[in-house]
Amino acid sequence: MSTSPSVAVITGASSGIGAVYAERFAARGYDLLLVARREDRLRELASKLEALHGISVQTLPADLADESGIQAVEEALRSNERIEILVNNAGTAHIAPFTAGSAELHQADIMLNITALTRLSLAALARFQAQDSGTIINVASVVSLHARAGSAVYSGTKGYVLNFTRALQEEVAGSNVRVQAMLPAITATEIWDVSGVSMEDLPPAAIMTGENLVDAALVGLDKGEAVTIPALHDLTLWETYEKARLAIFESCLTGVPAPRYQEK
C-alpha cells in the first residue's frame, strides 16, 4: 500500500487565490498538481513550495478556456489515484456592458468559468465517490447572489457555480466526499487586470487579501460549511436568506397559479 502524500489539484494556480491555496495545502503536507496557462510562473511557484515544505509539485500548463487544456486536466484527475482535493479556482471576468463584448469573448468566459469547472468536477467526483473520499472546492463569488450592470456573463457564470455546487452537495450527502462553494467578495488578485475595472477605483476598505480569503475559506472547509463567504460578518443575514430561498421554492409546489395572475 502506498504511503505517498495525497495530492491537491489547483487550477488558476500561478497567482492570486490559486497560488495561496497552493501554499496552504503544501503547508498541510499535500503534494500538488498546479494548473495554469503561465508555465514560467508555475515552475517558480513549484520550486518555492518544494523548498519551503518538502513536498512534491507537478505543473501542468493548460488553458482551460480551450478544449485541449480541459482534456489534459481531466486525464490527470482520472489517472492519478493520489488526488484527494480539487480546487476549481481558474476563472475570468470582463466587466462591461453585455453588448460591448463579442460573442467570442463571452463564449471564452463561459468555457473557463462553467465548462471547465463542470468537466473537471465530473472527472474528480466520479473517482471520489467510488473511493468514498475526496474534496472539491468551487470558487464562486458574492455576485452569485446579486448581479449588477456590466457583470451579466460573470455574474451568470458564478450563479451557475453556486447552484451546480449545491446540487453536488445533495448528491454526496451522507458520504465522505465534501463539496464546498467559496464566495469571495472584492479580492486583491490579478483578475482586475483583465476585468476592465481598476483596483484603484474600488473602495480600499472593501478589498480583502488573497491570504485572508483563503485562510478563512479553509476554516470554513474544516468546519464542514457547504457555502463559505469569508467577508460576511453577520451570519444571520445568510441564515435569513437561506430560509427565505427555501421557503420560496417550497411555496411554489402548488400546481396552481398565484391569484395575482388569475383573471378576474
Rank of each mutant, 00 (worst) to 15 (best):
M1G: 15
S2L: 05
S2F: 01
S6P: 05
V9M: 02
T11S: 13
T11C: 09
S14E: 01
S15K: 04
I17V: 06
A19P: 11
V20C: 00
V20I: 08
V20D: 00
V20A: 01
Y21K: 02
R24E: 12
Y30Q: 03
Y30C: 04
D31K: 00
D31G: 03
L34Q: 07
R38Q: 11
E39I: 02
R43H: 14
R43N: 15
L45N: 08
L45P: 13
L45Q: 15
E50Q: 15
A51S: 11
Q58L: 11
P61N: 05
A62W: 04
A65L: 12
I70K: 04
E74I: 06
A76W: 03
A76Q: 13
N80V: 08
E81F: 07
E81T: 14
R82H: 11
L86A: 10
V87P: 14
N89I: 12
A96I: 00
P97C: 00
F98M: 05
T99V: 08
S102E: 07
H106K: 06
H106Q: 13
A108K: 15
M111F: 01
N113W: 03
A116P: 01
S121D: 05
S121H: 09
S121T: 11
L125Y: 00
L125S: 04
Q129S: 12
A130C: 05
A130Q: 07
D132S: 13
T135R: 14
T135L: 09
T135H: 14
T135Q: 05
N138Q: 04
V139M: 04
A140T: 02
S144N: 02
H146R: 06
H146M: 14
R148G: 11
R148C: 08
R148T: 14
G150K: 00
G150S: 11
S151A: 07
Y154P: 00
Y154V: 00
S155F: 04
R166N: 11
R166Q: 07
A167N: 15
E170N: 09
V172G: 02
A173R: 12
V177R: 15
R178W: 04
R178D: 06
M182C: 13
L183T: 07
L183Y: 08
L183R: 07
A185T: 01
E190Q: 12
I191G: 00
W192D: 06
S195K: 12
D201L: 12
P203T: 09
A205K: 09
A206K: 14
A206E: 03
G210Q: 03
E211R: 08
N212C: 05
A217P: 04
G224L: 08
E225A: 11
A226M: 10
V227Y: 01
L232S: 01
H233G: 07
D234G: 05
D234L: 09
L237K: 15
L237F: 12
T240D: 13
T240R: 06
T240L: 12
E242L: 10
E250R: 06
A258G: 07
P259Q: 08
R260E: 11
R260T: 05
Q262F: 03
